[in-house]
């Protein structure tokens, strides 16, 4: 697939500056969004192959999770910061979509925006102290943060319905009620493509170059004049907004939200999507989300052996395609071409 080779991120050993310059000098606007256009074509054509309405739901879920994964990938793959609590932000978005209309009579779209703003605000406040931590310490801090949110969603039953969750009223846009898997396929596709386009733009912006410099070496980036903590905080806030919007969409789509959406296992699933697909690859996040949404459906015929095989596949992919599916395959293609 030609999309994949367009998506390569410069490998760490290449000099990021010269790569950035060549992209800049080259046909910037058109080239930068080429992958998004190709993805849009694929997304538009995919339903032609769907044998039943069930596939609309499956791929709508793929796009929604891919949206959250793209955001997390900006943080992990480009800025090099781990978050094991990102489902917490999906939870904020999901519960905003549920609580806004139910308790305050707000329209759904406004609740989604409020959720995103709230996520950004919380990410901004929490991010400053948390992002000072490094490596596994950052991992455990974000894990704790996600856990706290999940506990709040489970405990504050008057607001959230407790562990059984609460129902979410339908999203209404300009008098048009968004319902059904087919409609949500297109809505989630547009959201994902917009998220991907913004991500590509961000990566090629000065902030994006600063992010990648931090990924390679925080100290070196600092010496080169990058405001390290400000850049990390910016990416953290952006990625929280991605997760929040994905969470709101999931809540509207399912018509129900439970604390599960913010749980530790969901956070791990998001990280797995990013890492399996390929860190630092936007298309990789789509592939990672597709793999983890489709696999449980594809493996149902194994019944009791499903989890064993799922575990083996994850291990196998990570051992043999250690940079993730998309970057590893892209590298193999490049290698063959010489």
């Amino acid at each position: 697939m030609s999309v994949r080779s367009l998506d390569e991120r410069p490998a760490a050993q290449e000099q990021p500056l010269s790569k950035a310059r060549s992209t800049f000098v080259g046909s910037l606007g058109r080239h930068r969004l080429m992958p998004v256009l190709l993805l849009a074509v694929l997304v538009a054509l995919a339903p032609l192959l769907f044998p039943s309405g069930f596939y609309y739901r499956i791929f709508a879920l793929v796009y929604i999770f891919a949206l959250a994964a793209v955001g997390l990938n900006l943080l992990m793959g480009y800025a090099g910061q781990v978050s094991l609590g990102h489902a917490g932000f999906m939870g904020i978005g999901a519960y905003a979509a549920a609580i806004g209309p139910a308790h305050f009579g707000l329209p759904g779209w406004l609740s989604l925006i409020i959720g995103a703003v709230l996520s950004a605000l919380i990410a901004f406040l929490v991010g400053r102290p948390i992002l000072r931590l490094k490596g596994h310490y950052l991992a455990v801090a974000t894990l704790g943060f996600g856990l706290l949110l999940a506990i709040v969603f489970t405990s504050e039953a008057e607001w959230t319905g407790g562990p059984d969750g609460m129902s979410v009223s339908r999203l209404v846009l300009f008098g048009w009620s968004v319902r059904g898997s087919e409609t949500w396929y297109w809505v989630s596709a547009v959201l994902f493509l917009a998220g991907a386009a913004i991500a590509y733009n961000l990566i090629e912006s000065p902030a994006g170059r600063a992010m990648r410099a931090i990924h390679d070496s925080e100290t070196a980036a600092g010496v080169l004049g990058v405001d390290v903590s400000r850049t990390k905080l910016l990416v953290f806030v952006i990625s929280s907004v991605y997760a929040s919007i994905a969470g709101s969409s999931l809540a509207f789509f399912n018509g129900l939200v439970t604390p599960d959406v913010a749980g530790f296992l969901r956070s791990i699933e998001l990280v797995a999507m990013v890492v399996l697909g390929g860190m630092g690859s936007v298309v990789g996040s789509l592939v990672g989300a597709a793999v983890l949404v489709l696999l449980p459906q594809a493996l149902t015929f194994l019944h009791d052996y499903e989890h064993m095989v799922l575990g083996l596949i994850i291990m196998g992919v990570m051992i043999f395609l250690r940079d993730g599916i998309v970057p590893s395959i892209a590298a193999a293609f490049r290698g063959r071409r010489g």
Partner: peptide, 19 residues
Amino acid sequence: DDGGNPNAARTFATRLVEE
């Protein structure tokens, strides 16, 4: 097997109906 996850249960419900 939905594993107790409501999102998965909903997907399987759709599959039972559509597929």
